[in-house]
């Protein structure tokens, strides 16, 4: 007979209790940090937020007036980036996943995508400045929304490609086979079977990319121009909210106005994240329930 140690089970249970406590503390800490940041920024920023703040142009370097041009600039920039990056990114991922035969070139391409995703955004900004602002200045308008958007595209393409590929890979191959076995072409199968199933994941990837763009400063610091004026076209300079926050805080030291901008930014990002989650659920329900 094996002799069990009488207290061993008690000890094991105690150890488990300790582990669970530590793990829940770690989780609680994460939530606390998030809440602390959100509440602090809100508390600081809410005092300056008003209809005037949201809808008027800034005066005196942004120490007075509102942030409307920065909101418009953000919307322009994000819209333009998504318009360019989403089709290219999703198209690339479809090509990589559905058409391209496995091989050395594909691995190299995947690896390059990973590397591109790992490049610090200030490097993207530097590249954007030299390439889109200076070299292509005649076509992009120099420091402009367009130059910023093209830089943003380079930055978020790998994010979209990687996440879309993940979504495409999750489509069961037996469904693709089922479609092909009925005499369809590969493209028809992609349109009717693969894309509907991958759409929730792809949409989420695009929305998360939007979130990344909205929060980004470094890549646009050197490319979008930082103009306080209302942009009339994509060839004009502009500011995003994040950039406005940075510039107001750095150049004028008016922390109050910067916090106001930050509060708007946080609300915007929260809305986008909740929208992403809701849209994901909706699409899953619509296409695969």
């Amino acid at each position: 007979m094996v002799e069990f140690k009488p207290n061993h089970l008690v000890r094991v249970k105690r150890e488990q209790m300790f582990a669970f406590t530590m793990l829940s503390l770690a989780a609680a800490l994460t939530v606390l940090i998030l809440l602390a940041i959100v509440f602090y920024v809100m508390a600081q920023g809410l005092s300056v937020i008003s209809m005037e703040f949201l809808l008027e142009e800034p005066r005196k370097m942004g120490t007075e007036g509102g942030i409307f041009p920065a909101i418009v600039g953000t919307v322009y920039l994000v819209g333009l980036i998504i318009l360019i990056a989403a089709p290219i990114g999703v198209g690339t991922s479809i090509y990589l996943n559905e058409y391209m035969p496995d091989g050395r070139f594909k691995s190299v391409l995947r690896f390059a995508t990973e590397l591109l995703a790992a490049i610090p955004s200030i490097i993207h900004g530097m590249f954007g400045f030299l390439f889109f602002v200076i070299a292509l200045g005649d076509y992009t308008g120099g420091w402009s929304i367009l130059s910023g958007a093209l830089t943003g595209v380079v930055m978020i393409l790998p994010i979209i490609i990687r996440a879309s590929e993940e979504a495409l890979r999750s489509v069961p191959s037996n469904l693709k086979e089922g479609s092909l076995a009925l005499g369809t072409t590969r493209w028809y199968t992609i349109k009717k079977v693969v894309l509907p199933l991958a759409l929730p994941g792809i949409t989420t990837s695009v929305i998360l990319a939007i979130g990344r763009v909205i929060g980004e400063t470094a890549a646009f610091l050197l490319t979008i121009g930082g103009s306080l004026l209302m942009a009339a076209s994509v060839f004009d300079g502009a500011r995003t909210l994040a950039l406005h926050l940075y510039l107001v805080a750095m150049e004028t030291g008016n922390v109050q106005m910067a916090f106001g901008t930050g509060a708007v930014l946080i609300v915007l990002i929260l809305i986008i994240n909740f929208a992403a989650a809701a849209l994901f659920k909706l699409l899953v329900k619509r296409f695969s329930a």
């Binding site: 069961p172 037996n174 469904l175 086979e177 089922g178 479609s179 092909l180 076995a181 009925l182 005499g183 369809t184 072409t185 009717k192 079977v193 509907p196 199933l197 296409f287 695969s288 329930a289």
Partner: peptide, 19 residues
């Protein structure tokens, strides 16, 4: 091959209806 597969149907090991 598409023409072939419209004349030669296939049923798989695991039922694979589309969603």
């Amino acid at each position: 091959v598409e023409a072939l597969r419209t004349q030669v149907g296939m049923v798989f090991q695991k039922a694979n209806p589309f969603p």
